[in-house]
Write a protein that binds this DNA or RNA. Sequence first.
DNA 1: ACCTGAACACCGTTCAAGT
DNA 2: ACCTGAACACCGTTCAAGT
Lengths: 202, 202
Amino acid sequence: MARRSDHSLEEIKNMVLEAARTIVIEEGFAALKVRRIALEIGYTVGSIYMVFTNMGDLIMHVKARTLDELGDQLDEKTPECAPQERVLKLAKSYLEFASQNYSLWSMIFEHRLPDDESIPVWYQEKVDQAFVRVEKLLGLLAPDVDQSETRSAARAIWSGVHGICILSLTNTLDDVGIKDVENNIVLLVENFIRGWAGQVDA
Amino acid sequence: MARRSDHSLEEIKNMVLEAARTIVIEEGFAALKVRRIALEIGYTVGSIYMVFTNMGDLIMHVKARTLDELGDQLDEKTPECAPQERVLKLAKSYLEFASQNYSLWSMIFEHRLPDDESIPVWYQEKVDQAFVRVEKLLGLLAPDVDQSETRSAARAIWSGVHGICILSLTNTLDDVGIKDVENNIVLLVENFIRGWAGQVDA
DNA sequence: ACCTGAACACCGTTCAAGT
DNA sequence: ACCTGAACACCGTTCAAGT
């Protein structure tokens, strides 16, 4: 029985976002509908369009929140250590987040906004931040390599780790154990770094 | 003005499939709707449910056709040569297919069937075939390594290549040139193989 | 036996009308 | 000024009715 001015627009916005996240977590991205969210927060459909321009906008904000949480966990779970070891920890930590927050994480890639809409800059920046972490570490590993080459290497290895996660987790979460997936990540990262950092004395 | 028995069920099935592919190619996966397909082939919506159980079934068959074409191109474009070189050619060839058939290719990963439905075996087999190619080559590269380890390595490197393709092509097809993407793939594959094949004498 | 097309349930979005 | 909820256009799916 929510009446006007019960909540500020900002409060409603947060309620919508939280409700959306809960629905995705408990019932999956496919269950995320405007009427469902409205029911959850005690308002009607129209109210949601007061705080988000449309469903796509709402979804982008849910995805952004997930990216923030991912970033926080990556930093928390990978304490200072030797660069090579830390890249490996970052990669394992990414897998951990993906498997523990599967619905929210996979939603980031499942959802595509229509061709005529472009990705908001504030969102793209959050995506780029993920790459920066690895880039810095690779820079420490091979200080004499060009920054542009280091950037490419970071992008390659991080995309590679993501590829293993997405192919392993989305198709067959059960029959391939999480440990097998982690082994593949270790394999990719260790061999890549051995090949990359060792290229000078080869 | 299609009347009964103008086409056999098998013919209609193919017409539906071809129409669906054309729509995806020309207007994207988001534009693929039953009514649109019906219009294209000169039948009405009901007819489509004579040859496919539902939209999900139809989509799986479109995806299967794409996987077949991908397999064919991988074989055609990567003639016999040294194993290491051929893995690289496979990877480049995969990127080429993905970028030239972007809508059909990305649809494979954009579409997820509902949680209560499981992936048909005939479809899963087609997916596995892609990995087998790399697995065989890595087997040639390091004949004394366990088959299970070779399988893991193949999965790791191929998933890695896929990861680069999907992150590079789906987000920003324009501002990151296709050559940059290819460079990242070369980087990943060469360094991985250098690290992997060279691990014994390290 | 094959095919139609109206009908149904459900979706995102809008906006005149209420408080 | 905030919020409602009926209305609209569109979606996948079904199935009694036609030929």
